[in-house]
């Protein structure tokens, strides 16, 4: 190595650091967490606390095994952010054992198998989400029914999240009443039964209201990140815009099996994902043009998977698929933009 060194202290007043970036992301998540707590009960808090706790412990263990300094990677809060994102993506009813598996996948398969922070080609939280979704489809598509929520106490939730382990959910018929499928899962069920869904959709828009509030809270958090320049505008804007445009075109010229734009945008993980998942700098494209291509790709894939694919909400898969394309996008942009 040469002996030139940039004396950064001479020229920068406030030193940017990874910790600070991550802390801002955590702050931006708060409104969304509060909204989810209001909508789905204490399960979401349990998820966040549990996931973060185990993720940090596991991360430290891995760092010790890999003979890395705990001060560098251990304290940069990136693992806390990733674990929180996973905890917010999964249902609040998810049994602890399943969440633990998700955290294991996140830290080991999502991150450290590739060499740790900054080396992973795929968004670790989404890798864990996909693994959970494929492995435990029953518990991953089940949410508390908001209308029954008043009867669910913290104790009940804890009981559900621990006792159900080792048993099939269908053995707990009592829980059947207070749990239900997510709105998008429900929509898909309707579509497959080939019933006319327009009436259902009209009713559903009303029952959608709480979900719109959750999405709006995540939106506020995303705007905060934009304001603090933690994320750039290209990815969230293009994700949402491309999804909205395709939905609009399809709703106008296509069949009536697609709900209106408002419903489309504010249901599922779209807003949350556009601001918090797709913008993960490690796995997103680098250049401005690259980020636009990347975001557009995610929006289109999310639309295709949601309305034509095998899963009710394909945001995680859309992100993972576009993660795969990132090196190609970066290279192509570089080649095209330079003389």
């Amino acid at each position: 190595m040469s002996h030139v060194s940039v004396n950064t202290a001479l020229v920068r007043s406030e030193s940017p650091s990874v910790q600070r970036v991550m802390l801002q992301v955590l702050v931006a998540l708060l409104p969304g967490i509060v909204a989810l707590y209001w909508l789905t009960g204490p399960g979401v808090l349990l998820n966040v606390v549990f996931a973060c706790f185990f993720a940090v412990i596991l991360e430290c263990m891995v760092l010790v095994v890999r003979k890395k300094s705990l001060h560098g990677e251990g304290t940069d809060l990136s693992i806390v952010v990733a674990a929180s994102l996973l905890a917010l993506s999964v249902p609040p009813t998810l049994p602890f054992m399943h969440l633990l598996f998700g955290v294991l996948v996140l830290v080991l398969l999502g991150k450290h198998v590739f060499g740790g922070l900054g080396q992973n080609p795929f968004n670790p939280a989404m890798v864990a989400y996909a693994a959970l979704f494929i492995s435990f489809p029953q518990s991953m598509t089940l949410w508390f029914n908001p209308t029954e929520l008043t009867s669910v106490s913290l104790l009940d939730t804890l009981k559900f999240k621990t006792e159900v382990v080792g048993q099939t959910l269908s053995h707990y018929p009592a829980w059947d009443a207070i749990t239900k499928a997510t709105p998008l899962e429900h929509l898909r069920t309707l579509k497959l039964n080939q019933e006319t869904i327009s009436v259902e959709l009209a009713n559903h828009t009303v029952s959608q209201a709480p979900w719109i509030i959750v999405s709006a809270c995540f939106f506020i958090g995303g705007v905060y990140l934009l304001w603090r320049k933690v994320i750039q505008w290209q990815i969230p804007v293009t994700v949402i815009a491309s999804f909205a445009i395709v939905s609009l075109v399809w709703a106008t010229f296509g069949t009536n099996s697609i709900p209106n734009i408002g419903y489309s945008l504010f249901s599922g993980a779209l807003i949350f994902g556009a601001f918090f998942i797709a913008t993960d700098p490690v796995t997103a494209a680098s250049s401005t043009a690259g980020r636009i291509v990347y975001g557009t790709g995610i929006g289109l894939l999310a639309f295709i998977i949601r309305y034509f694919g095998g899963y009710p909400d394909g945001f995680a898969f859309a992100v993972l698929l576009m993660n795969l394309c990132v090196p190609t996008i970066d290279y192509a942009v570089l080649k095209l933009s330079q003389p």
């Binding site: 198998v113 494929i134 492995s135 435990f136 382990v165 080792g166």
Partner: peptide, 26 residues
């Protein structure tokens, strides 16, 4: 070892085979 309903389905499906072989290689 434990009830079938708690198994990690991912391991039984094709992606599980790839991940498993990858880990063995590693």
């Amino acid at each position: 070892f434990f009830d079938r309903s708690n198994g990690v389905l991912l391991a039984l499906l094709p992606p599980g085979a790839f991940i498993g072989l990858g880990l063995m290689l590693a």
